[in-house]
Nucleic acid binder design. Structure first.
Lengths: 231, 231
DNA sequence: AATCCAATTTTTGCGTACGAATAATAGAGA
DNA sequence: TCTCTATTATTCGTACGCAAAAATTGGATT
């Protein structure tokens, strides 16, 4: 399990990325350098470098001389992120529609078809894994590696907040129906329509999440919770 | 000039960011840790952390055990970046058209009007500064801070490659005419048209740059310059 | 009893030294 | 003369230690 060839700081960064994206590390959690160094059997130096990289990618928040915490956002910012993600996804699927090879189109459709069983079985975890592959395949089909990387990075950054969203009752059924609409537009070669359908799909997902953040997302481990913001 | 309150690693990161974005440090230049440490009167530790952050943001390229160099890209990747930037800009101006306040709209138009003199005078540097402000004002007018940050970061990442593009004969006159088209669509409240005009504007800028990278952009300071690429 | 100031503690930030890995170079053999 | 190997030298990665800054706690004063 230990890639000895890989840089220690990169191993730590990847491990923390996974834990943040998977929700094991909740937003607001303090990331103590010494504790992490002990956990990974390393010195503080590689831990610090890993945290710096995570801060640069927006996954953690580094406050000078006050330590680093898992990135914590306001509901407004989460909605901003979702909107931006929706636009990126829409752009990707539009370009992909016009540029994907027949092979890529076939693979995407196969992938989509396979998700029917997961919905029928109510297997949220399997659907979540499929969903990631579905969207990432569209990124690659843009044949624009820079855009694909940007999309992937943004998706990763949102992972910590997206997790709960699929749990909502028959959200995955809705999700698959929306995928179907995207696939149909792709099959007809209508990139603009595919983009509109994808944007709607992402904004629906955002709405599903919004019903959570309104109730669950209270800023954890904050020093002073101000109930009344300044005018 | 020396912000003593600021973190040393952040000072170094900012200084290097400026030098890369301004073109003082050319793509492919080696960034020697020891040399940089001496230049900034610091040890290698903060230099390494600064370089890590720059690598995470894509401005430099870190090759394990082979040092870090200013990010060097292929012409294909530069075009990918321009296309992605064009799509981001198009998205921004579309959202901005629908959401900007009358005040913001007025300021944008004032800014645009002021650029006429620069074109008449052929002042490329002044136009370049105006151009940055023009685009950044549109980012902010989306009223989506995440999207604005993404757009800004992508623009910064491309800065090292964009510099020469405006030098082409009467490119700035063309640029201003394209801005005019964007402004007109905004004034009419037609976000979709504004987006199309902005996309065209960015792709025209890309074409202007492409005429350079075909002739000027040879990978500098490379060990072996291969004249004939592999099949 | 509450508030403010000071001291201690905890944690981050920076410097230095050592070890390891890779690339470059030189030498020998084919 | 070219190639392969070994050695050397440079550079990167890690660890540890010290210093500085912020948070917290305790004491004193109002």
């Amino acid at each position: 399990m230990n890639d000895e060839r890989m840089l220690l700081s990169d191993q730590i960064r990847n491990a923390l990325t996974d834990e943040i994206a998977s929700g094991q590390l909740l937003p607001g959690s303090a990331l103590d350098e010494t504790l992490l160094a002990a956990r990974f059997n390393a010195s503080r130096t590689p831990v610090r470098e890993a945290l710096r990289e995570l801060a640069a990618s927006g996954l953690v928040e580094a406050r000078p001389r006050r330590g680093v915490i898992v990135a914590r956002t306001t509901p407004e910012r989460i909605m901003d992120m979702f909107e931006a993600m929706a636009e990126i996804e829409a752009t990707c699927v539009r370009l992909a529609t016009y540029r994907m090879t027949p092979l890529e189109r076939g693979e995407l459709i196969d992938l989509h078809n396979a998700s029917a069983d997961m919905v029928a079985a109510g297997d949220v975890d399997a659907y979540d894994a499929f969903n990631r592959k579905f969207h990432e395949k569209i990124y690659l089909a843009t044949h624009n590696s820079f855009l694909a990387e940007q999309a992937l990075a943004t998706r990763l950054r949102m992972a910590a907040f997206r997790r709960t969203q699929l749990r909502e009752s028959n959200r995955i059924a809705h999700s698959r129906a929306e995928h179907q609409a995207v696939i149909s537009a792709i099959a007809q070669g209508d990139g603009e329509q595919a983009a509109r359908n994808m944007r709607a799909h992402m904004l629906n997902a955002a709405s599903a999440l919004a019903r959570y953040i309104a109730t669950v997302m209270r800023r954890p481990s904050d020093s002073a919770p101000p109930p009344a913001p300044a005018p």
